[in-house]
Every structure is written in C-alpha cells, then in structure tokens.
Design a protein around this nucleic acid. Structure first.
Lengths: 218, 218
DNA sequence: ACCTGAACACCGTTCAAGT
DNA sequence: ACCTGAACACCGTTCAAGT
C-alpha cells in the first residue's frame, strides 16, 4: 500500500533531522527518500534538487533563530549577554549554522541581534559610522569565535600535546603560561573575556578618543 | 609510451594546484589521475586514499606558512602587525587553510605566530594564565575573522540590501549608522580596528586591573 | 497533480593481474 | 616495486511513463 501523501514540509522535517544528527554530508537524496518511504524522484517534484533542498533548510534555520533579550545594567554587560545568547543558539544547531554561513546568509540570520547591538551602542554614546563599525566588530567576533570553536571540538586532540612545546620555550620561561597553553582552552570563559575586552575598548574609544591618544604616542 | 615514473611529490604538487585553483571539491581521484596521466589506482599506491592525500596536502601547507616578523615600536602595534601578516598568509591560500582548519590543525599552523604573540604579551607585562588567555583571545579573533571573511566574499551579495532595513529603523534614527550598515564593510579596516581594540583592552587589563574595576561598578 | 523505475554520468575504493 | 583495467557500491539528476 502507498504511504500518505508526501508534503514539502515532511521532506524538510526529515531532512532537517538528518542534518542535525549526522551533518550535511549524511543528507543524500537516496537516503532521505528511503527514510521518507518514497522514490527519490518524488523529492525532486516537491523541492527540486539537492541544492534547493539545502536552501530551504537554511531559510528555515534563519527564521527559527529566537529573539534576542539583552540582560544586564550597563551597555557593555548587555552586549556581552547578546553575544552569549547568540553563541548558545549557534551551538545548538552547529551543522545548520555552518550551512547558513556557507551560503552567505550569516548577515541576515544576524539581523535581530544586530538591532539589539545597535541599540546598546547608542546607549553607550556611539553614533554613525563609529557605531556601525563597533557593531560589525562584535558581530564578526561572535561568528568567528563560534566557527573556530566548532571545528575545534570536531578534532579534539591537537597533534603535538602543547606542554612539551612550551616547557622547553626558547625565549621566556613562564611556567604558568606554559602550563596554561598546554591545557586545552576553556571556550566558555575565553569567549566572554574576549567579547568583554573588545566591547570595553570599542565603547571607550567612541567616547573619550582613547585610541587616538594611544596611536599618537607611538 | 608510458610517462616517466610517478612520484609522491608529483602527485602532491598537482593535487595542491587543483585545490588552489578550484577548491577541495574539485579534487577528485579520477580527475587528478587524468591530469597526471596515470591510472587512478597508481595514486592509491603512492599516497593512499583521498583522505590521506588531503592529510598530506594539509601537512605541507602547515609547513609552508612563513616566519612571523613583528614590526612596530609598542607591543600593541607589534601584535597588530603579527595579526596582519597572518591574515595575509591565510588569505593567500583560502582553500588550503579551510582544509587545515577542518582537520583541526589550526593550532599547529599557528605555532610560530603563537610564539611571537607570547613574546609581545610578555613585553607588555602580561604573565602566566593571563598572558595565555590573551594570546588565545587574539588567536581566535584572527582565525575567526578570516573564516568569516572567507565565506563572506564567497557569497558577495547579501540577500536583502541592508539600506532599506535600517532607514526605516524601528528604534533610533541615525542616518550615518544606517548608511554605514547598508554598505558592505571594509574588511581590511575592520580587521585592524578589531584586533587593535581587543589588544588594547587585553593589555591594559593585565597591568592596571581596569577590568576588575569596571566589573565592580556594575 | 503527483509518483514511479530505469538509465546516465559521475564518484571513491578494492583487487586480481600484469611487468 | 610499481602500474593497470575491471568491477563494486555508492552518488545526483533526468526523463519517459504511469495514475
């Protein structure tokens, strides 16, 4: 007996499941058809080829991204909170995010967060091109961090265990540093520290011309 | 007539060419064999399967990465100069870099740069775990930025042209900001500004406890 | 309008066979 | 030791044919 009518939604649902569990490479037209209980060619009728299937999946993911709710009392802490939420959401769907990114839709996915960031930059007194630059710097940092992090825990054991490389350090002997670099990083902490450092600098730069002064001294 | 004896080096050279020009997906065993003028199976004898071929290519790239020569008078400018050199080198081999990254060897590729960064952090007065954290923050930022940038100019036209989204801005009206976010970013400048901002913050944080003070106020 | 199987042109990989 | 062609099990995609 034939299965109940195939719908576009059903195809997307099962495809999304497959990607979420085993990554984009595991999404084959034939495998998907098998899981759906239909002929491969039915998928083509409903969605088109593999490329458009991925496009549709990406489109979905972009819209699924939740709203951003900044928390905290100062602009800086609120921006960091936005960054954290974003990182959490991105990490919850690592495969799909990679696909979004590969399709160059990162910017669009980031729109709600961008609005929030703009708002906070304004509260902190940044305006115009300076504010835009700050927003983008934070945006790049967040996405970049998540991308690095992602490919990092995909290949957890780094080839030469760092310890040795540093304990025999050519230049400086700083055992604390050597030990710290020998251990794997704590990404959670590193993320917050990095964003916070960047934000602190960007905000002060906009208001008291700190950077110009520093630049002149050199 | 048969071609001259096939060598492991020759296979790697042509493979590297192929990847450099058309990306990793264009590297097929059959295509490579055709370009070499041998049977596909010869490649297997010399190198092994596709995976080990890619591994060998990556290994090469890691070793090709040039030495790092910091320039500038202050630690901050010297760190920024390291970042720039790294970005340039990464951008010169975008495909291969992506492969390095996918194989989780980013850390190893970064080793010379890491040494340079450690040296500069020390000059700036950072020590131990704090210095290690700063090194990693900068490292993550550089790689992250290049990764974001890469997938960015791969899909140049961002779906909805930003201008409209911002000119009707719900919250604040800041036409300068709207215009700036509507235009594509200048990556070169954004990169330098971001790294500089992060570094300034990390360095001051280590020496005068600036961050702790800020954190307490909130 | 929806679904099907057969067929085509591609893959990576293995293996027995050559020299 | 080095190289080969044939064969296997997979792909995505198209197309003519069914209902």
């Amino acid at each position: 007996m034939p299965r109940s009518a195939l719908t576009r939604e059903e195809v997307l649902d099962t495809a999304a499941d497959l990607v979420r569990q085993h990554g984009p490479d595991a999404l084959t037209m034939r495998g998907l058809a098998a899981k759906l209980g239909t002929a491969v060619t039915s998928i083509y009728w409903h969605i088109g080829n593999r490329e458009s299937l991925l496009d549709a999946l990406v489109e979905r993911t972009v819209q699924e991204m939740g709203a951003i709710r900044p928390t905290g009392r100062t602009p800086a802490t609120r921006i960091v909170s936005v960054a954290r939420q974003l990182r959490d959401e991105l990490r919850a769907r690592p495969h799909l995010i990679a696909m979004v990114h590969e399709r160059g839709l990162t910017e669009r996915m980031f729109l709600p967060a961008q609005r929030a960031l703009v708002h906070e930059m304004h509260s902190a007194g940044l305006r115009g091109a300076r504010a835009a630059e700050a927003v983008r710097a934070v945006q790049f940092q967040i996405v970049g961090f998540v991308l690095v992090e992602r490919n990092r825990d995909r290949a957890p054991e780094q080839s030469p265990r760092g310890e040795k490389l540093w304990s025999t350090g050519t230049a400086e002997r700083d055992t604390g540093l050597a030990r710290a670099l020998g251990r794997p990083a704590n990404p959670e902490k590193l993320f917050v520290v990095s964003v916070r450092a960047l934000v602190d600098s960007l905000l002060s730069r906009g208001t008291d011309g700190n950077r110009a002064a520093v630049a002149k001294k050199e």
